[in-house]
Design a protein around this nucleic acid. Structure first.
Lengths: 326, 326
DNA sequence: CTGAAAGCGCTTACAG
DNA sequence: CTGAAAGCGCTTACAG
């Protein structure tokens, strides 16, 4: 079924069919009605590939995430879906897996088929990003690069609250379980914690890099227990969960012997034992903002909608407690 | 950058460029090298929309899921990604949200842009499915319909193990917390449990329908505690988790006062308190099989690869225990 | 308000 | 092995 079939049935030219279906008002009410009826009757669906060729518009945007099973991604997807749907855009989600190389390939493959891309958890290098940005509208979440728009929730607020919380509990030496070496987010969190630690006069040190997974957290246990830390802040909740799991296996009580906190407040953080103290960001809002910015860049919106600052906040649960003196 | 630019640079016709890039061997080695060099130099990327028009092939398949934050979806996505990548196909994931109406719209929008569709957790009606199957290659997971290929992990094995487990613990009255009224999966699980219960001589009854969420589980608590059940099997882990949460709030001890089990073995089931007894299916394998079948239908594979039967198995954890006499 | 025509970037018989 | 040509389904100036 093509517009030619409709044209035949409605006794008009294909151009008129195209106008009737896309530019309401550019065609007389009577013919439009006739055309719509014909389209309905033939169960016509416009071919988006064919439409994209002359217009250069696909009406689709891509959300590229490293790992769709990473709970951090949920909120982003949720918000992105909402914002895209509101604008009548189709959102396709694409997974880039771990490596930057795979991500580059994924993005290269998907780029020509979409009007713009949101990189949610990118591991691309700055130079890859710059090259990509030249070819396609781009917005990033939790990553900054020269000349590319991005959404970066403030981590300072949550980091400050978390550290104050630990200090109030009497902790004097805190370990930061960092993420992968090339994780931009991990680096930002570490920086924020460093600044706050200095202000609060608590000593802090890094243990890492670590794979940002439960297994990564498990693998870090020995280094943690060998260290002077009485409290650990993991780069993300997954790491924290892994750490807590081995701790339990090894008979280390949490939080009485070791306090553990994470970042992200992922699904499950609330139900595990002990429930996890963590820093939360409104990721759905981040996803939504990223799409809105992208749509504005594409020209769907006249101007970027007013964006509220995204702050992070502490969620205190049971995995942090008073330091017990030696 | 188009093949015309490459043709200019390499001093050949566009047709030759197309051949060189797509049909290795159909062009002399020398010209092919020249063309590839030119393509490289111009940073050429074939326009998939333009390619799709004459060929009718998009090299893309869609995976439609109801809710991407549903942990059940992860494994499916994981496996589907793997299978699609192996065939050089791009997989786009699309969320249909709750309602069948939204799903129908989503599918209609995405269908023309892909070569085939895998419906992972569909709520479409049989008639919608039949109509869609006429327009597009279709494979479903956990849903059966006349004339449409599907992947259906066997739930019988896991259901039998679970019920035997409960009977061995002394339970005599079991409640099934069902899912939404139109959930095909919930209906299948209930049927399997009914059959097994009859064989084992344990009484079982349904409490539902319920929203297949944590909140749904919470909302079901009053009906559960009013019932004669000493053990509850929830349609899915989310429901089970919600139920356990309220139970804890109300001072009902699990499993000593009430045993609770779920289905799916989602992320977090292992970490909650108490950890959740559940029935697990290899969902990644299901996702992989669905894609392989679809690719075979599309003609990418000569024949459907041999598919092993997907069975379900019981994972015993701490949320089920001996029945305590009144 | 409507139609004829050109063009979007590619592929693929058809010739040579 | 290579080129010229037609065509995929749509959109959009350009005329009338």
């Amino acid at each position: 079924m093509t517009i030619y079939d409709i044209a035949d049935l409605a006794k008009v030219s294909p151009s008129t069919v195209s106008r009737a279906l896309n530019q309401p008002g550019r065609v007389s009410a009577a013919t439009e009605a006739r055309i719509r009826a014909a389209a309905e009757k033939l169960d016509f669906h416009v071919n988006p590939m064919a439409r994209a060729l002359p217009t250069g518009r696909t009406n689709t945007i891509a959300l590229v995430v490293a790992d769709i099973t990473n709970p951090v991604v949920f909120g982003i997807v949720r918000g992105a879906e909402r914002a895209a749907a509101k604008a009548g855009y189709t959102l396709v989600i694409s997974e880039s897996q771990e490596s930057g190389a795979v991500e580059a390939a994924t993005v290269a493959r998907i780029a020509p088929a979409v009007d713009g891309i949101v990189l949610a958890t990118t591991r691309l290098t700055d130079s890859d990003l710059a090259k990509l940005a030249r070819r396609k509208k781009l917005v990033m979440i939790n990553r900054a690069a020269e000349g590319i728009r991005s959404v970066e929730p403030t981590i300072r607020t949550g980091a400050a609250e978390l550290l104050s919380h630990l200090v109030a509990l009497g902790h004097e030496a805190v370990a930061f379980l960092s993420g992968p070496r090339d994780s931009w987010t991990s680096a930002r969190r570490w920086e924020a914690l460093l600044v706050e630690a200095r202000q609060l006069g608590v000593s802090i040190f890094e243990i890492g890099p670590n794979s940002p997974t439960i297994d990564g957290g498990k693998a870090a246990f020995d280094r943690v227990s060998a260290s002077p830390a009485t409290a650990v802040i993991a780069f993300n909740d997954l790491l924290a969960i892994g750490l807590i799991q081995v701790a339990r296996d090894r008979g280390v009580r949490i939080p009485s012997e070791l306090s553990v906190a994470g970042f992200d407040d992922i699904f499950g953080a609330e139900f595990m034992v002990p429930s996890l103290t963590t820093v939360r960001v409104d990721l759905a809002a981040a996803g939504e903002q990223a799409i809105d910015i992208l749509l504005a860049e594409i020209g769907v919106y006249k101007e970027v909608p007013e964006l509220e600052e995204l702050v992070s906040t502490l969620v205190v649960r049971d995995s942090t407690g008073p330091k017990v003196g030696p």
